[in-house]
């Protein structure tokens, strides 16, 4: 399996990364590495993690997302996960994975708005 390339885009103060396809351990580590570096380098106040390309999110991936969000938070930035698909949302709830602590939005536009509110009002927003 060739290494997937996930470019990190920058929109003003916000970083956007789109995850898709199959994520194995090695890929995940690479993503965490690059995001940490980008957040630190750019001083971005917000990161959007787009998962609309993930058709299967099992407990492993869910834990990975939680870890990445936690890491970004530690670096002083907010993270919002956008684009969870309906089938994935239902499955995650049924799976029983705790996701309540994660900020989520339907798409990049709503995600940007949420990041704005998080920046202005902290984690209690919404």
């Amino acid at each position: 399996m060739t290494a997937e390339v996930f470019p990190i885009m920058r929109i003003g103060d916000t970083l956007l990364i789109s995850l898709q396809g199959e994520l194995d351990d090695a890929t995940v580590l690479r993503i965490e590495d690059r995001l940490a570096n980008e957040v630190a380098r750019t001083g971005a106040t917000g990161t959007l993690i787009d998962v609309s390309g993930l058709t299967i999110v099992d407990s492993f991936i869910a834990r990975v997302l939680t870890r990445v969000v936690g890491m970004i938070r530690l670096l002083g930035s907010h993270a919002v996960i956008v684009g969870i698909q309906p089938a994935v949302a239902i499955t995650l709830v049924e799976l029983g994975v705790p996701m309540g602590h994660l900020h989520t939005a339907l798409n990049a536009e709503q995600g940007m708005a949420l990041l704005r509110r998080l920046r202005d009002h902290g984690d209690r927003a919404d």
């Binding site: 309906p86 994935v88 709830v93 309540g100 989520t104 939005a105």
Partner: peptide, 13 residues
Amino acid sequence: LKTVQAATLMGAA
């Protein structure tokens, strides 16, 4: 509650 949780994951209040 499950419905609400799923909707929340999709960013809806």
